[in-house]
Amino acid sequence: MDGNLEDIRLLEEIQQGSQQSFELFYEKYIRFILHIAYQIIGNKEEAEDVCQEVFLELLQKSFQYQPEKGSVKAWLAVKTKSRSLDRLRKKKPLLMNKLEALVPEKESPLDLIFLNEMERHVLIDALNHLPEKQREAIYRAYFQGETHQQITKHMKKPLGSVKSFIRYGLRNLRKQKSLVKWMEAERGWKE
């Protein structure tokens, strides 16, 4: 844990106003934080805003760090995940962008990572304008982790119908996203 003791020392020096220690700490971790934020949010500019929030938070609240729970690096990772999910909750177009990654042929394991840790009502709200069956099929497939076979069983519908619900649901999701973008543009970017 030598590296961790070094991190704790840097945090202490930063709090005493050492810009040099800040730069060392920044160079050591900025790419790590940016990487996590970007994987969750999917937008570089927003991910950088999260980096800024995380750095400021840890500089102001480093007393909350508890070494027995894990390393400083792990603490940064948890904070970054939390702030990134907060951002998706607050900015609907960002969440809609992430949901667009649901298009099956584009989906990678990272696209939806941690999204299922968001409150169910936030996700349901984002899918709100979809017809009920499409919404249910998409929620089950992507946030409950059910297979098409399991969805078939739960929804008591044939496999072909389930696949159609998902396909049409995704198509509607893209239309909904365009609508949300247009509405947000009309009234300005919503915090």
């Binding site: 920044y26 994987q39 800024q52």
Partner: peptide, 22 residues
Amino acid sequence: VMETETNLQPSAELKENIWKQA
């Protein structure tokens, strides 16, 4: 997350912005 690699580089002004605010 840890196994995935990205070549994202932070913007040049990010460090300075954070330090100014901090």
